[in-house]
Design a protein around this nucleic acid. Structure first.
Lengths: 251, 251
DNA sequence: GTCAAGAAGAATATACGATATATGATCTGC
DNA sequence: GCAGATCATATATCGTATATTCTTCTTGAC
């Protein structure tokens, strides 16, 4: 008895119509909801949330769920909570902006112009150098995997999820070829962000420019172990992506 | 009644002798303990932890605490848990290596040679470029703050916590001057890592080389808006830190 | 006889709610 | 101003119920 509050039923408002929507863990759903509230700026920095009990029943979940949701937000630097003081939103400089989830939430809330500027600037700082390193350190296996990824990318095109996955795979292999785990991690964060924008780009703009020639150019330079040329190729690739993204989001 | 298990009592093993050690939140302590087990490689990737109930009483904490600890680790990509399958350690490529905590734990567990190589390589990729940007975009306030930080750094020296804090503050201001939030976030992650190594460097080597001249050189180039020279100055600064760190850890 | 598809079961994470404790911000009195 | 009391709040624990999914067994077809 007391069957009323199972996981998939009510609570999170309105998206439960039809599909049962136990899609994610409940605390993760709550975390996501709170996170988007925060990064979107709906609730400003310094804001302190209601007390746990009140807040929990306001959201229609148990306190445990709410607490676990806040744990992940705390882990990502978005909030911090202390006894008696409540749970409050940290200032932006405390946020883990490079966390894949934080990056994703930020994009989901509509990436601002400054956000895109910063993101592509970061890519411009890191990835050309990474391409240079990859050209020097890549091994044969990575090379053939990269070739396969490009092949899949051309077959499926960027308008399909599989094509976009191949694109990501290519960049991931490139970063793996740098033989630097931290660069790889950084790239993973960026990639997920880029993936979302690419999807948006596709959905808004039916036929964006074909980026395959530039990808092949980059691949060739890495295969030939030409660090300087690989750097140049990566720069043009990023510039291309940047201008495309700007155009797509303008519409 | 049932007074036996308050927060500050037993549980986490042996470090509670003398000092009450309710220093941090309990779940955070547990998370830290598990995290160090993971990043140190004590428990290998793919390992699945005992069931929650068993694991909880093994650690002497409640299930809620253990769960919240795992939420933190999950948020940082170290583990993932699914019903029936248990909670298992992810492969390294899933970890958020750039997360300040993950970085810190990794250093605490004895940074490997590869770790330091990757870290300084990342600095070498990002920070010279950042210095260049800072030289172009810095404003007057940042300039005077940087001067103050350098002043404090010279007064207290790197052998004191206040001196090291000033060092960090200087680099933070530099990154702030780039006017790119993501670069700032990246720098924050790196800084905390560097801070630990600096402390180690100090504790092992009584009188390391004085890095003040190089810091002033960098400052001057930024103040004079010389991007190229600022880049050069930053490169020598990082090289200096790298060689010092390597020497210190050799002992 | 062997293998694949499907159904039953069991182990596990997940979720709920009530209760007790510790902490620290705020107020009070001096 | 400063020290102490207070009280709201996060923190921690326990017991129980639910949902998920891996495992295993069965069933069926070839």
């Amino acid at each position: 008895m007391k069957k009323e509050s199972t996981m998939a039923d009510l609570g999170l408002g309105e998206e439960i119509e039809g599909l049962p929507l136990p899609s994610g863990r409940l605390h993760h759903v709550v975390a996501q909801r709170l996170a988007t509230q925060i990064v979107s700026g709906d609730t400003p920095c310094g804001h302190v949330f209601p007390a746990e009990v009140e807040h929990a029943e306001m959201l229609g979940v148990s306190r445990s769920v709410l607490r676990e949701a806040f744990r992940v937000l705390t882990a990502k630097g978005l909030v911090s909570s202390r006894p008696k003081a409540g749970t409050r939103i940290n200032e932006r400089r405390k946020w883990n902006l490079l966390d894949p989830d934080v990056l994703g939430w930020q994009i989901q809330c509509g990436a601002s112009d400054e956000f895109l500027r910063d993101l592509f600037e970061l890519r411009m700082v890191v990835e050309p150098q990474a391409a240079e390193m990859a050209a020097m350190r890549r091994d044969e296996r990575q090379l053939v995997d990269m070739a396969n990824a490009l092949d899949a990318m051309e077959r499926f095109t960027l308008s399909t999820p599989k094509g976009r996955a191949a694109d990501i795979r290519f960049h991931e292999l490139l970063m793996e070829a740098t033989r630097n785990e931290m660069l790889l991690a950084l790239s993973n964060s960026i990639s997920t962000a880029i993936a979302s924008t690419t999807a948006i780009k596709q959905s808004r703009d039916g036929s964006p420019r074909d980026a395959m020639p530039e990808h092949y150019a980059l691949y060739t330079q890495i295969a030939d172990r030409n660090p300087r040329q690989a750097r140049r190729a990566m720069i043009t690739l990023i510039e291309l992506a940047h201008s495309d993204t700007k155009i797509a989001l303008k519409r």
